[in-house]
Every structure is written in structure tokens, then in C-alpha cells.
Design a protein around this nucleic acid. Structure first.
Length: 226
DNA sequence: CCAGACGTTGTT
DNA sequence: GTCTGG
DNA sequence: CCAGACGTTGTT
DNA sequence: GTCTGG
């Protein structure tokens, strides 16, 4: 699955890849983005790309209480078209690209007991990438709450020893451009929803510093010995 | 009919 | 909003 | 995902 | 053990 990720690169480098209007108050390197936090996502509206803050944890439009979003941080790509919480966003093309340059997965010890080891997973060339996301807008007392979830798939060969799920990575321009285009019918996108090419990725262990969502330093992303 | 859930991962 | 369970 | 709370009454 | 919050 994907329960934590990073977006550490500079704004300028991001905008060179994702040419878009910025609707953020500020840009800062994020090393430990956790569920319920706001994070930048790429969305297309009226043919224009925009980077906007959305809250991680999709709140369905029919929810009475937005805390339901705390559980909706991932959607299985295999079932996203059917699940009540996600299918409306899927059907209506409310797709977004969750901007990232690393994500974290926790590996259980071989013995089955003891602390898990967090790993950082990135592209081999360390370029940023997008994760396949769906978004919703929820009408609350405080106005519109915009939220997102991250789609998952089975793991590739790199991730399999670490975890049994991984987020859907849209690393190719053709892929993410189609994903964020609301006019592309969802049926044409299912081929994108598989595990990414493992030979273009790297994974390495990091410190348990990343475990606490309050720890937001670059230490989160630093390699430690096995 | 109404009430209550609506999710994923991992563990057993 | 829609489905499942009672 | 992990960390941290998990309760009530009464008082400020 | 399980739920909530970040």
C-alpha cells in the first residue's frame, strides 16, 4: 500500500516537468507526507493543468462526517470502479496525479515479530513521478473540502520482498497526461494501473525516524545500512 | 421496510 | 447515493 | 503508514 | 486490542 511519501524537490524543478499553474501558498520540501495532511496534486480543469492542495484521505460526496476520509487513503485499482466510496469519482473522471519523488513501505522482519523496517522507494534516476489518484469535493460547513486517495496494485519484483502492495506509479508523460485528462474515458486507463517497471526503480532502508509523522526532516529519506 | 456501512493492509 | 443485513 | 489514546466528573 | 489523528 502507500501510507507515507515524500515530495522533496524544488518547485522550479517540478514545474519544468509538470508545466502547470501553481495554486499553493508556498512550496516546501516534504519528506514525510502522512494521511490527513494537505499535499500538492496535479489536476486538469478546462484544459489547464493546476497544482493544488488536496487533503489525503478521500471523503465521498455523500459522507455525513468527513472523518470517513481517514480510512480512504488507498483504493485497490482492481476494485476502484465498483467500490461505493470511489466509483463515482472513477466514473466522472475525477483523477489527479499525486506529486511525489519517493514513497515509504514498511517491511516486516523475517521472523514475523519485532519492529518493521521502513524503506524508501524512488525512481533509479531520482526524478519525481506521479501516483495515480482520485479526488472528491465534499460540501461541509467550512466550505469545500477537497480530498484524494492513492490507487494501489500488486507489487513488482523490487517491492515484493518488502510489501505485498504498491502505489500505481505514472512515470511516463503519456501515462500521466492521459490520467489527468478528464475527457479520457476510464476504460482506456485500466492498462496503466499495474506495477511500474522495477528496473527503473530503487529501494533502500531508512531510519525509523520516518515512523513518526511529526518528523519531517530530510533524514526520512537518508539511506541507512541494512 | 429501516439501519448501517461505505476501506486497505495484514494477521489469524 | 447505494448496497447489505436484519 | 505509525503514534498515541483508550474515561468520567467537576472545575477553571 | 482497536480506533483516531497526523
Amino acid at each position: 500500500m502507500c501510507g507515507r511519501y515524500a515530495l522533496s524537490i524544488e518547485q522550479q524543478e517540478m514545474l519544468e516537468i509538470y508545466v502547470a499553474n501553481l495554486f499553493l501558498d508556498d512550496w516546501r520540501s516534504r519528506y514525510n507526507i502522512a494521511p490527513t495532511q494537505e499535499a500538492p496534486v496535479l489536476v486538469q480543469k478546462d484544459g489547464e493543468l493546476g497544482i493544488r492542495p488536496f487533503r489525503w484521505g478521500l471523503v465521498p460526496f455523500w459522507a455525513k462526517d468527513p472523518s470517513i476520509g481517514n480510512r480512504m487513503i488507498n483504493a485497490r485499482s482492481e476494485t476502484v470502479a465498483e467500490k461505493p466510496s470511489f466509483r463515482t469519482a472513477w466514473k466522472h473522471g475525477r483523477r489527479c496525479l499525486v506529486l511525489a519523488d519517493a514513497f515509504y513501505e514498511w517491511q516486516k522482519p523475517a521472523s514475523g515479530k519485532g519492529p518493521k523496517t521502513p524503506h524508501a522507494i524512488r525512481l533509479a534516476d531520482e526524478r519525481p513521478f506521479g501516483l495515480a489518484g482520485l479526488w472528491e469535493s465534499w460540501d461541509g460547513e467550512g466550505g469545500e473540502l477537497r480530498t484524494f486517495t492513492i490507487l494501489t496494485s500488486e507489487p513488482n519484483e523490487l517491492l515484493r520482498p518488502i510489501h505485498n502492495r504498491m502505489p500505481v506509479i505514472l512515470g511516463d508523460r503519456d501515462a500521466w497526461e492521459a490520467w489527468v485528462d478528464p475527457d479520457v474515458p476510464p476504460g482506456e486507463l485500466e492498462e496503466l494501473l499495474g506495477p511500474y517497471r522495477p528496473e527503473e526503480m530503487q529501494a533502500y532502508p531508512v531510519s525509523t525516524y520516518v515512523n513518526n509523522p511529526g518528523n519531517e526532516g530530510e533524514e526520512c529519506l537518508r539511506r541507512v545500512p541494512d
